[in-house]
């Protein structure tokens, strides 16, 4: 699940890029061996062969003709590939649109049109259906970030004031890791996310769950009260409650996500508690304060239990 390997692909474009990489490595290896072979012959070869290599025509053949032929072929191949990468899936549904906004140091993910007059908002996790083109519309709220899901496609930068698009498609269900690849400040290293590809019915079911507002059964009333008293709603939104701030991630379905802290830790009640208590220990420099001094033990357990129950 933690794989971020370029060759561990999950979709057609990822496959194409992996194939391209192998092609380049193969070609590069041949050229490397050839050049070193020439060098060895030049140093230790038979006198007759060395005389051939010592001719200026050898420079023209090896230094001009060979690279021109090889690189022209590579250029044509690349151009063909560049076309293929942009093509929509033949006969497929219209692409699904998902907006991803980079923040220092987390990802806001929006699904426009999934709710009347808006869409569900999650964080640090992109859920997509398999077998369908998905257009990621990416931008950033503060500094430049870059979105990279090596299993599916290459990077696309998230630049404030600019919306970039990258079309991805997963063929097979599964979870894969992605990460920010443009240096974005102190905790650039801890700005990861998960992509979960699911079969279309499973995806629809997930979407339906996400559409529901947050519920607070009686056993979690205390957690909700702690959330209110600690001022968490000053930064976070929980749909179905009075809190609608957009500074930090939307917590409506926090417990259903795979990680907390943008890929820093696995998601469970314990790590939620640890994150709330010591966000600055776990990821120094991120914008969430540590609440260890503000909450006592039972309060911390109550609020993390409530948040964990939101799925």
């Amino acid at each position: 699940m933690n794989s971020q390997n370029v060759f561990d692909t999950a979709g057609p474009d990822g496959d194409r890029l992996a194939t391209l990489a192998w092609l380049l490595f193969g070609g590069g290896l041949i050229l490397f061996v050839a050049v070193l072979g020439f060098l060895l012959v030049a140093l230790y070869g038979a006198a007759r062969v060395r005389r051939t290599l010592g001719n200026p025509r050898f420079i023209v053949a090896g230094g001009i003709v060979m690279p021109v032929v090889v690189l022209t072929a590579l250029l044509l191949h690349t151009l063909g590939l560049a076309r293929a990468l942009g093509l929509p899936m033949p006969g497929g549904e219209p692409p699904l649109r998902i907006e991803v906004i980079g923040h220092q140091f987390w990802w806001e993910v929006r699904y426009p049109g999934t709710l009347p007059g808006g869409g569900i908002v999650t964080a640090n996790e992109i859920r997509i259906p398999t077998g369908r083109d998905v257009v990621l519309e990416v931008t950033a709220s503060d500094v430049i970030h870059s979105l990279w899901i090596p299993a599916l496609h290459g990077k696309i930068d998230m630049i404030p004031g600019l919306v970039n698009r990258r079309t991805i498609r997963a063929d097979r269900p599964g979870a894969m890791r992605g990460q920010c690849t443009e240096f974005c400040g102190t905790q650039h290293a801890l700005m990861a996310f998960m992509v979960v590809a699911e079969t279309p019915p499973a995806y629809e079911a997930w979407l339906d769950r996400q559409r529901l507002p947050a519920a607070t059964p009686p056993q979690h009333e205390m957690g909700r009260a702690v959330f209110a008293a600690a001022g968490c709603g000053g930064c976070h939104a929980v749909r179905g409650t009075e809190w609608d701030a957009r500074i930090g991630p939307d917590l409506t379905a926090l417990g259903g996500r795979l990680t907390i802290g943008a890929g820093t830790l696995p998601m469970n009640e314990g790590t939620i508690a640890g994150w709330i208590a010591g966000a600055q220990d776990l990821k120094p420099g991120n914008r969430m304060p540590s609440f260890a001094n503000a909450l006592d033990g039972p309060e911390l357990r109550a609020v993390s239990a409530w948040l964990e129950s939101l799925k």
Binding site: N268, E269, G270, A273, A277, L295, D296, G297, P298, L300, R301, S304, A305
Partner: peptide, 14 residues
């Protein structure tokens, strides 16, 4: 944990 130490901050691991 809370059954042993009621004021603990440690949630029960699943």
């Amino acid at each position: 944990p809370a059954a042993i130490a009621p004021r603990t901050a440690m949630p029960a691991p699943a």
